[in-house]
């Protein structure tokens, strides 16, 4: 049984079959990419996996446990973290607080414990400090020190993308869903991001599902790629193989790319 497995996933909105019989297996510590033109159903797959939508049919299995029917917060606790295409951060909180929110599922302090946080030796304070240390490591890793105490709403787009990535990483997930992490970044930032994604896989032992439009990035870091169009699978396989497939070139890269 594969580490993470999606089988015969279907969902339709009205008459539109947004995701139509999609299946794939992802091995532990793999980087698995999903490509396809806009509206082909990539983000819908992520929304199905993270529990925002419920599939009409199909199974989503992480380490033998079915995720279908669980609420998003249950799924997060099972070890699936994600980022969003259009960035969903907590704009009126600092970078630090956003990352600390990534630690939410690992923290125990309740409302009463929190209220009685008097002195550095109270239970709440000790837990707070322990988790701040973990978050500080992520701040170091993603080079966010300069914006640590700034409000997220005022940050540049590229930085906000990183904060969102950091928040997902702070959850210490088993699987991370990255929805167009490089959108809005310049070439230099994209190069850094590529290295970070590899590091997240290698050093943090996270399996990564990636939606991306930047073909250089896809071809550079993916172990396997799924290409889709209009909710259906075109092909899945090694990046080179997928890139050469005529239907992929036609649907996604454009007719002239054949020449």
């Amino acid at each position: 049984m594969a580490f993470f497995n999606v089988a015969h996933l279907h969902i339709s909105f009205g008459g539109l079959k947004a995701v139509n019989n999609i299946s794939f297996d992802v091995q532990r510590n793999e980087i698995f990419s999903i490509i396809g033109p806009n509206g082909s159903g990539k983000t819908t797959i992520f929304n199905l996996i993270s529990g925002i939508y419920r599939p009409d049919e199909g199974r989503i299995v992480l380490e033998g446990e079915n995720m279908v029917g669980k609420t998003p917060d249950r799924i997060a606790r099972k070890g699936i973290a994600r980022t969003f295409q259009n960035i969903e951060l907590f704009a009126n909180a600092t970078v630090m607080d956003n990352l600390m929110l990534g630690r939410h599922i690992h923290m125990r302090t309740g409302i009463f414990g929190g209220a009685f946080m008097f002195g550095s030796r109270s239970r709440a304070a000790r837990e707070e400090v322990a988790h701040r240390e973990k978050v500080e490591r992520i701040i170091d890793f993603l080079e966010l020190q300069s914006v640590r105490d700034q409000f997220v709403g005022g940050l540049a787009y590229g930085k906000r993308k990183l904060v969102e990535l950091g928040r997902a990483l702070a959850m210490e997930p088993k699987v991370m869903l990255l929805d167009e992490p490089s959108a809005g970044m310049n070439t230099e930032e994209k190069d850094d991001l590529t290295i970070w994604i590899k590091d997240i896989r290698d050093d943090f032992q996270v399996t990564i599902l990636l939606i991306e439009h930047d073909m250089n990035m896809i071809m550079g870091i993916s172990d396997r790629v799924l290409a889709m169009n209009q909710g259906r699978e075109i092909i899945q396989g090694a990046p080179g193989e997928v890139q050469r497939h005529p239907e992929v070139i036609k649907a996604y890269l454009g007719e002239e790319a054949i020449a």
């Binding site: 925002i52 997060a76 969903e88 907590f90 909180a93 929110l101 302090t109 929190g114």
Partner: peptide, 23 residues
């Protein structure tokens, strides 16, 4: 300043993000 307070702020700023981080 602690877990519950941050979760409150998270719900205010983005319910969907709050859900997918496990709140």
């Amino acid at each position: 300043k602690t877990k519950a307070g941050r979760a409150f702020v998270a719900i205010r700023d983005s319910e969907i993000a709050a859900e997918v981080i496990g709140i």
